[in-house]
């Protein structure tokens, strides 16, 4: 089986600040990879390099057979295969929930409005929000907003889902509903990369845990390996802080 994502010797800096150093990473189809690390360690930047929201200056990224950093790569087309969920939801406030979801399928994939709407309603049912189709984002709670954002990303039928701290902006009582949706997705076999501080979720749903420290991929392994028996001192230190 070929990897879904391949990253080779990826480096990225902002000015003189090197944020990612020589990252090597492979993600297999249906794999759920959880990225952990302290604030500022480069987790978001790595995720954003994968769908070209940031441009890495060195190294290689392959999404299936497509070299992301090649000059002639059609980036919008590549992004159609990769959904992204943001910490701040980034729903389109001027559109109803259902239109948030159907916009890209209609305009980008070229589906008919009926087709897109049917798919959109199916996804809203899946995230438990079919009654909110005609609501505006401003009237939703944080947890509901994030579930709509997940449905919006799924509507493009991506092969990969990227999550950047999807529950960090939520009130504690709403974290569960979003994690539940993500858990379902993982079970259905979606390839996922998740940045999160929810260690319970990482342990339960993650196939592989990756620890980033100051832009370096310091340690990776199964949840049992990384949580149960971390090899690196920095990993131990980080885990003792977040699990305390």
């Amino acid at each position: 089986m070929n990897p879904m994502i391949r990253v080779k010797q990826l480096s990225k800096s902002f000015g003189s600040n090197t944020v990612l150093r020589d990252i090597d990473l492979e993600v297999m189809p249906k794999e759920v990879v959880v990225l952990i690390g302290a604030s500022g360690s480069g987790k978001s930047t790595l995720l954003r390099c994968l769908n070209a929201l940031e441009t890495a200056e060195k190294g290689e990224i392959w999404i299936e057979e497509t070299p992301l950093l090649a000059k002639d790569t059609n980036i919008p087309k590549l992004r159609m295969e990769m959904g992204m969920v943001f910490q701040q939801f980034n729903l389109f406030p001027h559109m109803k929930v259902i239109d948030n979801i159907t916009l890209a399928p209609i305009r980008v994939r070229g589906w008919t409005p009926e087709q897109a709407r049917a798919k959109g309603m199916e996804l809203l049912r899946k995230v438990g929000l079919e009654t909110k189709a005609d609501a505006y984002p401003a009237s939703l709670s944080g947890g509901q907003s994030q579930r709509v954002a997940i449905a919006r990303a799924l509507a493009m039928e991506p092969k990969i889902m990227l999550f950047d701290e999807p529950t960090s902006a939520l009130d504690p009582e709403m974290v569960g509903e979003v994690l539940a949706v993500m858990k379902t997705l993982a079970k259905e076999g979606m390839t996922m990369i998740v940045v999160t501080h929810e260690m319970g979720f990482a342990r339960e749903v993650g196939d592989r845990i990756i620890f980033l420290d100051q832009g370096v991929l310091l340690e990776q392994g199964t949840p049992e390996e990384v949580f149960g028996n971390p090899r690196n001192e920095r990993t131990k230190e980080f885990l003792s802080k977040v699990l305390a």
Partner: peptide
């Protein structure tokens, strides 16, 4: 808003 749009392939 722009990033969300781009991430959807726009």
């Amino acid at each position: 808003q722009r990033e969300a749009s781009y991430s959807l392939g726009m």
